[in-house]
Amino acid sequence: MSIRHSLLALLSEGPKYGFQLRQEFETSTGDVWPLNVGQVYTTLQRLERDGLAQSDDVEEDERQKNYRITEKGGEELSRWLRTPPDLSEPPRDELVIKVLVASRLPNVDVFDVIQVHRRYLVQLMQQWTRMKEDESHFDLAFALAVDAELFRLDSVVRWLDSADGRLRRVSLESVESTMDSTFALPSNRRRTGARR
């Protein structure tokens, strides 16, 4: 989360006072990202140092200073918005590691491990969805931030589902390969599954 560029974005709407920037920063992110107040003022000073913003310099108090974006600041904002974040390296995902470990251990039911995480994620998604439910206080920034979180959690659930399916297929194949092909299939396999 770049405070620096978020502040530049707010300044691109017109000159603003320090305390106003702090308030608008919080509402523009739908109040879902908690903010360290000190960081806002430090960041404003740095923006000024780097020539990306200018203050009127009449007030000593950061809260009372009036800031405006410079031409260089406008260019920096435009560049930042269009620069994709680096997603080329897969993150070291703790959940992925847990499932990989569980799939190797002989005395651990990997499907049980998967279900524990699946349930937790769906419960978390229920909590987010409930926050979105009340449309009477509709807030676009909040809805977009919550959607992003729901999609992120959903992608993890879908990965669990696909891991579940893949592991089941592999465990069935290993059962079959240990049996002579002229034998009947094991009864547990014949009896599971359902009509769609």
């Binding site: 769906v122 998604m125 969805t129 959903d154």
Partner: peptide
């Protein structure tokens, strides 16, 4: 099978 839809429910049964 969609968790996003299921998350609207009061209760989700697996």
């Amino acid at each position: 099978h969609d968790a996003k839809l299921a998350s609207w429910a009061d209760r989700v049964v697996f």
